[in-house]
Amino acid sequence: MALSIKQAAKMHLLLVEDDPELGRQMTSWMAEAGHRLHWVETGRAALDWMKGHSCDAAILDVGLPDIDGFSIVETLRGRGVTTPVLFLTARVGVPDRVRGLAAGGDDYLTKPFAAEELLARLDALYRRAAQSPPTRRRTGNSYLDPVRRRVTCEGEAVDLQPREWTLLEVLMNHEGRIVPKQFLLEQVWDIRFDPGTNVVDAMICRLRRKLETAGSNIHIETIRGKGYAFKKEPA
């Protein structure tokens, strides 16, 4: 189970955040998730620290008192540092996001955000950086094949629509973690706003019904106020 070992891999993270409350919260969340986190409050301190250290990913606030987050990444990329960078910002406009990605950032999360959202995104960044190839895997009586994009249960193929497969795959890739609705919307439908109607719930219910009907012991749990989680056995 190579995938779950990677999942359990403890990341070494850099956090640049000038708000003490948010910094404190993130420090505790990352510790609980098993990651090691170095927290600095200014852009200058971040650039200095990066001279002598390396990390698996950096979380960067954009609105810092000394140097803005975009400039920090530009400087780091100029030095040849390829560490994945996630921007954390109160600016929600698409032009801001585009500017951040153009500066060399890898992902963009707007405040306020859910702890699970941050963890899921860090996971995704890490996975992308590690370039792990899709792996076939068995969970209980089910067999998931990311190459052929299908699930078989006791040898029988479960009839899934392409989107349903993508949804299952995203959940599977974050096994053991709670995946928030917004993260699913972005990963599966490329949608970065809340469409209002309980569209994700409806899609999850349909996927769950199909898996149950096929007799699979893959279970997708709904965690109120947080999101969904992929489990092997019904809780």
């Binding site: 708000d19 409350e21 948010l22 919260q25 993130m26 505790s28 609105g63 109160a90 600016r91 929600v92 406009g93 707007t110 405040k111 306020p112 955000f113 859910a114 702890a115 106020g225 947080k226």
Partner: peptide
């Protein structure tokens, strides 16, 4: 607008974090 969004979003983020911890 940007400033207003920023001024509102940062405290909302703090409150949200604390509520998550409470949950």
């Amino acid at each position: 607008n940007d400033q207003l969004a920023h001024e509102l979003r940062t405290p909302l983020a703090r409150v949200r974090g604390n509520l998550e911890n409470l949950l």
